[in-house]
Design a protein around this nucleic acid. Sequence first.
DNA 1: TTTATTTACGAAATCTTTTTCGCGAATTAT
DNA 2: ATAATTCGCGAAAAAGATTTCGTAAATAAA
Lengths: 338, 338
Amino acid sequence: MRKINMKELAKVLKVSVATVSKALSDSHEISDSTKKKVLEAAKRFNYTLNPYASSLRNKKSKTIAVVLPEVADNFFSLAINGIQSVAEKKGYHVLIYLSHEKFINEKSILANCCSGRVDGVLISVSSETTDADHVLKLYRQNIPIVFFDREVEGLHLAKVITNDYECGYQSATHLINNGCKKPVFLSISSSLAICNNRANGFKAALKDKKIHRAQKAIIECGGSEEKIYSQIKKLLTSPEKPDGIVASVERLAVSVYLVSHQMNISIPKDLKVVVFSTLDTAPILNPPLTAIVQPAFDIGKTAAELLFKGIEKNKYKLADEKIILPSVLIERRSSQML
Amino acid sequence: MRKINMKELAKVLKVSVATVSKALSDSHEISDSTKKKVLEAAKRFNYTLNPYASSLRNKKSKTIAVVLPEVADNFFSLAINGIQSVAEKKGYHVLIYLSHEKFINEKSILANCCSGRVDGVLISVSSETTDADHVLKLYRQNIPIVFFDREVEGLHLAKVITNDYECGYQSATHLINNGCKKPVFLSISSSLAICNNRANGFKAALKDKKIHRAQKAIIECGGSEEKIYSQIKKLLTSPEKPDGIVASVERLAVSVYLVSHQMNISIPKDLKVVVFSTLDTAPILNPPLTAIVQPAFDIGKTAAELLFKGIEKNKYKLADEKIILPSVLIERRSSQML
DNA sequence: TTTATTTACGAAATCTTTTTCGCGAATTAT
DNA sequence: ATAATTCGCGAAAAAGATTTCGTAAATAAA
């Protein structure tokens, strides 16, 4: 079954290609009777528009790019779902790119997005990203871009994030109220705004609660899975070991649990744990894990909606749009006072 | 910063567009000196090829589609990672489509893939899919297609799967050896080959172990999260309640745990559980969960490699390629004999 | 020196669709 | 009945890149 093109379809119908094109796009200049004929023939020969020819002519790709650090993280999976749900409704296609937390990858991905391949970009930046030239390049080419969850600070660009500072504050308060004297915050990057916001909230709470250990309160803990594991192991066996941990991302909490189980550190007796995560296994962990749950699906959905606002009305400038969707702390046993 | 096209670039260089095109693709018919000039100018004007014009001309999109039921499942996330890793290396772009386990969605997604938008398709079918006309349509258009994990049975098309039957057999044997008298297999679909293979292996093991309850052994448990929850609750409170469960997918196991916790059913004392899953929280669940772990990343990676074999050599027919990557059972406390 | 071959590049066709413009016929207005 | 619109459609240009083919100059072979 060979593919037919519009020219051939026009020939069998004995009309011009212009007529076919207009009929397919339901133009008012074509009579209902010929429209019907064209549609029928198109179905019969199962003709489909060549998307690349259309895109070339229209300068519209009906495609968006989603750039994220990784996909094997519940938060990002859910966010993709949210994004997909609106892209689907709009008839847009979704390209997925992974930066693997590397700035250099992110840069080349965004450079590629400048080619006109996509009509807009949703991005959650890598943990290495401090510089924003690569996203400004997009901006200058008038390609709509929206940050979700992880933004680059100091840019007046559209973003959909959660209330990280408050949640950081809340997490520390929660631990202290439940008896922690030496809580620490596990960050994955000192350059990531989202982490710093959480960390700053955390530190502010310590200060308000008169717990003075600013130096030791924030611990950076990045790299591969093995590296994270050994860093946490070191932390939990050091003489300065904390009695409370706030893990800034899912993976860190899993490692904390693994180390604790291995070292016979009892949660929550010896160590209380709170995590920023959407893990659906949190309630069935041993012990059930207190989590600050982000509205992951909604963050993705909202970001996508914002992006389409920017795509559809090109008069509409996305700059300075900033939507904050609050997370919610769900208390479970991992942080309980005994 | 306006975008420049090849014609304009050619004009400033005082050469023809043909020369520019050939220089950019490093053709042998262009001298090194002019190549250098062209490259330099391209960088200076930060010129990029228009991908849609290229695709139109070349009839190659440098893009593949990945069609899957959902993305918020660890297995699929990891598989996407595997796929991405090879697509990236090949310089291909990855479109993600979600069927949400609906046949009708899958059909329209694949219909769209016929338009030439993609050079190949990787698919893990929905749980509703029994008919294969929609994938045969692709096949007839000579668009390479590879199944991963979830295939449609009876088709002589390329596939990368795991040893489901053996694992089903192994899971039942494992439960029985650990003392279960009334194990059941929780399936999400009676039409999904992968589930049936696992179920058949499960049933075969029961037969070999002289446990005769063929009727009650396989329980279908699909639908929304709430529906799954209530079905499992009903199962675990019925007089016929099992003393062992094999969950065919991640989500089912989470629900089993949730119900058990809520109903005070003790795992593994009252109920032993095994799951087909790549959940990285399995070892820290309460209790640690015995899992049959699929090589998710490798399944994705291998499927993608196979697909590119089909894409790159069009003489090469993908039919009948069948690669089986074995899963491995990891014993934990959820299935332990007491 | 003459012929053959190679080298380096340009003109034009091509890929498929969309859109503008124009034209003849049919309809409405005058 | 004539002029003015409207309607339905076609011809052709355009979108941006690639490829084939041709050609003039440069080099090699005879």
